[in-house]
């Protein structure tokens, strides 16, 4: 199977549910396979919590689920542990596995969902559970095109310097309550993993050509309103450059991996190049679905005003 993920062509010996399948390509950027991962005899350069770096190799172990080995930005090997299925391990390959690939390739990747409005990308950043996917699905209902669900791979080295976002090749991944709220049951697919109440949902309007990047027009940082404040409607503000720079650094996908792989100095420059061209907004909302439409409206208004 061949996929297009974050602007990279991927050849996989296993099915990656939710991944965007493409026709075969002769010399894919990344190979993904199932296999035995031998113990690495070399001394690790860094030992993290259940992961380690040995030279250009990244190792991860999710106890009882999967071991991953990611090498040199080109290869992912996954070893299922115990009785898990290929479907069970695909989400780990598409998330942490590709985080390692992107940092090994020194690419800027934000933890973000992305939609396109009139051909211009809006990237919605936030930690897991912040509501990125749900807000992006709401924006799609308001007429935006779907670009990516969880990773925004951004390149700032194009010919005219405009930052562009590459689709992560994923579908929407939405919790059952969001699917119901947005009446998307017709397009609901399989759960992300069998125990989860979070499902793949086919976008009605994916950006047509999977390999194509979309010029980035705005970055939105999703923030949950502090518990110390009463619940209420969302608010949005444009951030000053200095604030945006420090805050955006924290939105990098798997930032500790970037740091340990020595990617930080370059990330600093990549973020500076992005901020040179793209406004950053902070959207603060109360958790939950109550003000979802109001949030989507605020995002589109901010886009319009930013020109």
């Amino acid at each position: 199977m061949y996929y297009s993920i974050c602007g990279l062509s991927v050849a996989a010996t296993l099915n990656l549910p939710g991944g965007l399948a493409v026709p075969p390509v002769p010399d894919p950027d990344v190979s993904v396979s199932i296999g035995e991962i031998p113990d690495d005899p070399n001394t690790p350069d860094y030992v993290g919590t259940a992961w380690r770096l040995v030279g250009r190799r990244f190792y991860l172990e999710v106890p009882g689920v999967v071991r991953l080995m990611v090498h040199d930005g080109r290869e992912i090997v996954a070893q299922p542990l115990s009785a898990v299925t290929e479907t069970d391990i695909a989400p780990f390959i598409l998330s942490t596995g590709f985080a390692a690939i992107l940092h090994q390739r020194r690419l800027l990747a934000l933890h973000a969902a992305t939609v396109a409005w009139k051909g211009q990308a809006i990237t919605l950043c936030g930690p897991t559970g912040a509501g990125k996917s749900t807000l992006s699905a709401a924006l799609c209902q308001a007429g935006a095109d779907f670009v990516g669900d969880d990773i925004a791979a951004i390149r700032t080295d194009g010919p005219d310097g405009t930052p562009v976002v590459w689709p992560d090749g994923r579908q929407h991944r939405l919790w059952a309550d969001a699917i119901e709220h947005l009446t998307l049951a017709e397009r609901q697919g399989a759960p992300i993993r069998s125990h989860m109440r979070k499902f793949h949902v086919a976008p009605s309007s994916p950006v047509e050509r999977a390999g194509d990047a979309c010029p980035l027009a705005a970055v939105i940082l999703l923030r949950t309103r502090e518990n110390t404040l009463p619940p209420g409607p969302p608010g949005i503000e444009r951030l000053a450059l200095a604030d945006a720079a420090s805050l955006l650094r924290r939105e990098v996908y798997r930032p500790s991996l970037a740091r340990c792989m020595g990617h930080d100095p370059l990330l600093f420059l990549q973020i500076a190049a992005l901020l040179d061209r793209v406004p950053v907004f902070r959207l603060e909302r109360t958790r939950g679905l109550e003000h979802l439409d109001a949030s989507a409206t605020l995002v589109l208004d901010a886009m319009t005003r930013a020109g």
Binding site: G48, T49, A50, W51, L60, V62, P63, G64, V65, P91, F92, S95, T96, A99, P127, T128, G129, I192, R193, H195, M196, K198, R254, P255, S256, L257
Partner: peptide, 27 residues
């Protein structure tokens, strides 16, 4: 959850309750 994800690099929503328990010693 957010601390666990930062440290383990894994989206803990992907894990079953038992699998979550099994990453706890590493934390």
């Amino acid at each position: 959850r957010q601390v666990a994800e930062e440290l383990t690099l894994v989206d803990t929503f992907l894990l079953t309750r038992d699998e979550c328990d099994r990453i706890r010693p590493a934390l």
